[in-house]
Design a protein around this nucleic acid. Sequence first.
DNA 1: GATCGCATGTAAGTGGTTACATGATTTA
DNA 2: TAAATCATGTAACCACTTACATGCGATC
Lengths: 184, 184
Amino acid sequence: MRNSRTKYAILGWLSREPMTGYDLKKKTEANLAFFWSESYGQIYPILHKMEKDGLVTMVEDREEGRPPKKIYSITDIGKESLLLWMKKKPDKDVFRSELLLKLFFSQCCGPEIIKKHIQERMDDSRAKLREYDEMMARMALNRNDDPAFSYWTMAVEFGINSELASIDWCKQTLNNLESFEKKE
Amino acid sequence: MRNSRTKYAILGWLSREPMTGYDLKKKTEANLAFFWSESYGQIYPILHKMEKDGLVTMVEDREEGRPPKKIYSITDIGKESLLLWMKKKPDKDVFRSELLLKLFFSQCCGPEIIKKHIQERMDDSRAKLREYDEMMARMALNRNDDPAFSYWTMAVEFGINSELASIDWCKQTLNNLESFEKKE
DNA sequence: GATCGCATGTAAGTGGTTACATGATTTA
DNA sequence: TAAATCATGTAACCACTTACATGCGATC
């Protein structure tokens, strides 16, 4: 837990508004899914520790006939810790691709198998692009006054560019594999 | 270890030529670094297990005055296992970006800090592009007859496209942040 | 009556890295 | 003679995921 970025993702969210562990997870899924993820198994224990360390405070919200919520807010110490992290040079992006691994070793079985995988990847990328469009539309509707929206847009733009680049690569590589096949 | 892809990365390499655990690590670093990595702490134990499972065989190579090598070769069972894996739909690419996480939460500290990070990222991407060029040149020299080279080129092409897209995004985002600043 | 969404949490397991130990040879 | 490279290996740790447990209310 020493170097966990989960802590800072939580502080980032709480710097906007107080919320529960459940909210944290749902918001991360809905907004950051393509470049970040968190699980309950991380969130809840870390939230407890953060409270103990004075980074956040918690109030219990008991409404009748509903499961009690624990609403967390960021403290001044938490804000300081967040700012310190923001200033640090970000770690390298993590990228790991089984598709490229399979492509690299495709000599062992010929181009047909990997062609199918790349075709499917192209379809997946197109589906993702449609998702981004929906996300953008949904967010733009009720948030164009929020300064956070601008930052969010730039992040999503990265995802869109990546998928566009991925689709181009798929087409190009499918062509390469085609002509490669004839040569053999 | 049940579903470890390390196993298949090893089988992939050994399907080309027999080699040692040390070679496996070095070759992965030199050729797959931008989309795959392995550590000795994974390679050696898994290699032992693979031998026990009959996926590979090992011969010891003792030359005088040198540390003894263990040279691994793929078996027919190993080849079968590799082929089965090749045919399976590849897992989703893993992507995780602290840079985008920081961008997303930049509301908490304003655009200056993230601008610096993005500027640095652009420099890093350019450096990576130069590395790819070197890799391509180095490989093209002595390998243009090897059919594996074509597959390798296509994989590297993905990396090049990604970095190109990343650089574009950096420029564009830097511009956005500039005008965003003036509005505030 | 079943399942979904809200809401919190834990235990076990995953795949993987890091740090370390050992020791010879080659290069700077 | 110090450092880098070759070469194998293990123990401890790491961040994180998955599966599970609980239970209420709303919806299908």
